[in-house]
């Protein structure tokens, strides 16, 4: 017993180092698996508060460009509204108020990152605004990511610029779908994998969400095809997608809630069992 205690006292530095190093490695490994990072995320009171107050200040420098973005979106929505007026008649049921499948919330990005290999964003909406895990996040130009962790006032978002992110996407022209991933290199491009060899497409074609994942509705823009090649087995295409979003400058985003999400996942889990 004496010897054990002596050993511990003699090597206390090394043992402490070993202990703390393994704890940090544990946190790292946890953060690499989706939804597992329990303690270390920026959706807590302290870091969220700091980011929020700094963001209040920083917003003034971005006002002009963000206003232009919002004006452009207003223009687009207004043109859709005008053009669809003919559809409104007495039997028309407004899908926004009756039996709607998706609910939208707006939020501001208070922390953005794009230079790491696993990037997360932080938003200023949390469970108090009924934002929960697995809600989709989009901007006026395209998709941003999926809500990962929430606290009462803040939420972190698993960005599409994250090597663990996997989102179902498809070609706009045909219904061939694949998985949108990121190789960790450029924040302008993501990679669309598993598009079957029979699909016909060309450079510049649009990629949209497929609506298969039950997180994003169908027809949300992602980007255009920059280049493509067959994978090693020559069965599927690997497509380089240039994003519509400038991921390095995001301010106003929309959070999408799929009202039927729990019903769909329950059903699918039931099928698997």
């Amino acid at each position: 017993m004496q010897q054990i205690i002596n050993f511990i006292i003699r090597n206390k530095n090394f043992l402490l180092f070993l202990l703390l190093f393994s704890v940090s490695i544990l946190f790292t490994i946890q953060s690499h698996s989706y939804h597992k990072s329990k303690f270390i995320n920026s959706a807590n009171f302290l870091t969220g508060g700091v980011y929020n107050s700094i963001n209040d200040f920083n917003n003034y420098f971005k006002l002009k460009s963000q206003n232009q973005l919002l004006a452009a979106e207003n223009l687009r929505l207004r043109s859709i509204l005008r053009n669809s007026k003919g559809l409104v008649d007495s039997t028309y049921i407004d899908s926004l108020t009756f039996n709607k499948a998706y609910r939208f919330y707006n939020a501001n990005v208070i922390k953005n990152s794009y230079s790491l290999t696993d990037n997360f964003l932080t938003l200023n909406k949390g469970t108090n605004d009924s934002v929960k895990q697995d809600f989709g996040v989009i901007s006026s130009k395209g998709i941003i990511g999926i809500v990962d962790k929430t606290s009462s006032n803040y939420a972190t978002v698993l960005s599409i610029l994250n090597t663990t992110s996997k989102i179902s996407a498809q070609l706009k022209k045909s219904n061939h779908f694949g998985t949108l991933t990121w190789n960790g290199k450029s924040p302008e491009f993501t990679q669309l994998l598993d598009i079957p060899k029979v699909a016909i497409f060309a450079k510049g074609d649009t990629i949209i969400t497929s609506g298969r994942s039950s997180i994003f509705p169908k027809n949300i823009d992602i980007g255009t095809i920059e280049s493509f090649q067959l994978d090693a087995a020559e069965n599927y295409y690997e497509i380089e997608v240039k994003l519509f979003n400038d991921m390095t400058s995001i301010e106003h985003v929309y959070i999408i809630e799929n009202v039927d999400l729990s019903e769909i996942t329950n059903l699918e889990n039931g099928v698997n069992e």
Binding site: F21, S24, F27, I29, Q30, I40, V50, L116
Partner: peptide, 19 residues
């Protein structure tokens, strides 16, 4: 790490150089 959502990578690197 808390601020950057990076798990424990900064903690691990710091403990290593401190040791």
């Amino acid at each position: 790490d808390l601020f950057l959502d990076t798990g424990g990578i900064h903690a691990a690197a710091c403990v290593f150089i401190a040791y």
